[in-house]
Simulated scan of single mutants.
Amino acid sequence: MPGILRSPDMARKAKERLPNVAVLFTSGYTQNAIVHGGRLDSGVELLAYTREALARKIRHVLANQAQRRAAQGSQHSADEKAFKDATVLVVEDDYLIRLSTTEMLSNIGCRVKEASTAQEALKIVDEQPVDVLLTDVGLPGVSGLQLARDVQARRLDVRLVLATGDSGRKLKPRD
């Protein structure tokens, strides 16, 4: 990731602030260019770029997160809904990215709600059931990290997926 903040550092900061967040690295580099010593950091996943791989990897990351919660004595039942039946709230200010993400999630069987701002997203969370929040970190106004904190304060059971394509953004201490 170009810029001052490296991707592993951003992931570590996100996990410190939101311990239940799933971390999924995407990269245009080949796997051997970013995997050192045959390993990524514990709990971090790597994605190759295809639509099918993205769908598979998102399901995999969320399933692993559910297994970890169950192993830690989470109150979630073992017969949780399959991810394909999940209601996913996609929060992305870029229309084309939101459209393609929504289409991909719909194609794998998710019910998708859309918002372009944190304020719109919170209104949806307050009014409708949501299983997964998939948010861009770099939203205008309120950041995706703050949105994730606000959503978890309202609903502890919502699974979180944070994404960013911003290569130069430096996280501030409260992000």
Rank of each mutant, 00 (worst) to 15 (best):
M1P: 09
M1Y: 02
P2D: 13
G3S: 10
L5E: 15
P8I: 02
D9A: 08
K15T: 14
L18M: 11
P19S: 01
P19D: 01
A22P: 01
V23C: 04
S27M: 01
S27I: 02
T30K: 15
Q31M: 05
I34D: 13
G38P: 08
G38D: 11
R39G: 03
L40K: 03
L40N: 10
L40G: 10
G43M: 06
V44R: 11
L47D: 09
A48L: 12
E52M: 08
E52A: 08
A53I: 02
L54H: 04
L54C: 05
A55Y: 05
R56S: 04
R56W: 00
R59L: 05
R59H: 14
V61G: 05
L62R: 04
L62T: 00
L62E: 10
A66I: 00
R69W: 02
A71V: 00
G73Q: 07
G73Y: 09
S74L: 09
S74A: 13
H76I: 12
D79V: 11
K81S: 06
K81W: 07
F83M: 04
F83H: 05
D85Y: 02
A86P: 06
V88H: 01
V88W: 03
L89N: 10
V91Q: 11
E92W: 00
E92T: 01
L96G: 04
L96H: 02
L96V: 03
R98I: 01
R98L: 07
L99Y: 03
L99F: 07
S100M: 10
T101N: 09
M104L: 15
L105Y: 04
S106L: 12
N107I: 01
I108Y: 06
V112M: 09
K113Q: 15
K113I: 06
S116G: 10
L122M: 13
K123F: 07
K123D: 12
K123V: 08
V125D: 12
E127V: 06
V130T: 09
D131G: 11
D136K: 03
G138S: 15
L139I: 10
G141S: 11
S143G: 15
S143C: 08
G144W: 03
Q146I: 14
R149D: 01
V151N: 03
A153Q: 14
L156I: 12
V158Y: 05
R159I: 04
R159Q: 15
L160N: 13
T164I: 12
G168N: 13
L171P: 14
L171H: 12
R174M: 02
D175P: 12
D175K: 15
